[in-house]
């Protein structure tokens, strides 16, 4: 499972300090899909990057299965799967080569990796693309390849950054099925998105992030109780208004 404890990250922008993440804490147990929600610039991606160890936290820490990112980044990274909408592919490698390359990066045994690549490809319906050059894939196909890539090392915790950005209806549906699969497989899943309507359908619990601070947290019912609003969109509109006032 994943826990985040009082994470803080400050950037300096044009000489002034900007708190991108401000004392953020949350837990995601197994079999749960946690929606880290917020408008653009709320600090969602920065949080994921700190969990992954791509950015150093100014204070606080993240831990996976009790291991802190800063203490043993390699152990933490090998327990995390990461998929982002901006992920690219290696245009000159075949899909299979690319999947096996990532398996190597995660030190998966080559035989296990080969089997897993077959199995996951069938699940995501890309088994026929395995020998194709990744550069020749369509956007939707690329996205499926990226999703398979994120699972090639069978991580217990999965981080998804804006997974539906730039996708059509079919693409979005694929993501929904994928997340269902992750939940069934018993993984802890964090989904960062600003698409609140989608999040409502996808996630078990939510953290509403605004200016790097967690404003509300809980299941949909709990949030409704806290905010007296029916939908996530209205809750955010209220948040913005408070700020404007």
């Amino acid at each position: 499972m994943l826990s985040v404890h009082s994470l803080v990250k400050t950037f300096s922008v044009d000489g002034s300090e900007l708190r991108a993440v401000d004392d953020l804490s949350f837990d995601v147990p197994c079999k749960e899909v946690y929606g880290l929600l917020g408008p653009n610039g709320a600090g969602k991606t920065t949080t994921l990057r700190m969990i992954l160890g791509l950015l150093d936290a100014d204070a606080g820490y993240a831990e996976v299965d009790g291991i802190q990112t800063a203490e043993d980044p390699i152990a933490v990274k090998s327990r995390l799967g990461f998929v982002s909408a901006s992920d690219g592919v290696y245009p000159w490698l075949s899909v299979r080569e690319m999947l096996l390359y990532f398996a190597d990066l995660y030190a998966v045994d080559p035989h296990v990796a080969a089997e897993r690549a077959e199995h996951l490809s069938k699940m995501m319906g890309i088994e026929k693309l395995l020998e194709r050059r990744a550069g020749s894939l369509s956007t939707g196909q690329r996205q499926r390849v990226t999703l398979v890539r994120g699972l090639i090392h069978d991580p217990p915790v999965m981080l998804l950054d804006e997974p539906t950005r730039g996708l059509d209806v079919v693409g979005v549906q694929t993501i929904f099925e994928y997340i269902e699969h992750l939940r069934d497989a018993g993984k802890s899943v964090v989904v960062c998105t600003h698409r609140l309507d989608e999040a409502e359908r996808l996630c078990d619990r939510f953290g509403l992030l605004h200016h790097g601070r967690l404003q509300n947290e809980g299941s949909m019912d709990e949030l409704r109780e806290q905010t007296h609003r029916e939908h996530l969109v209205d809750m955010f509109v209220d948040l913005m208004k408070t700020e404007a006032a």
Binding site: P73, K77, F82, S84, D87, P91
Partner: peptide, 18 residues
């Protein structure tokens, strides 16, 4: 430029190996 760097850096392989 291809957008593969972030996934590469997120993997648990020492940078020097890559």
């Amino acid at each position: 430029e291809r957008g593969t760097m972030e996934a590469l850096m997120a993997s648990p392989v020492p940078r020097f190996y890559v």
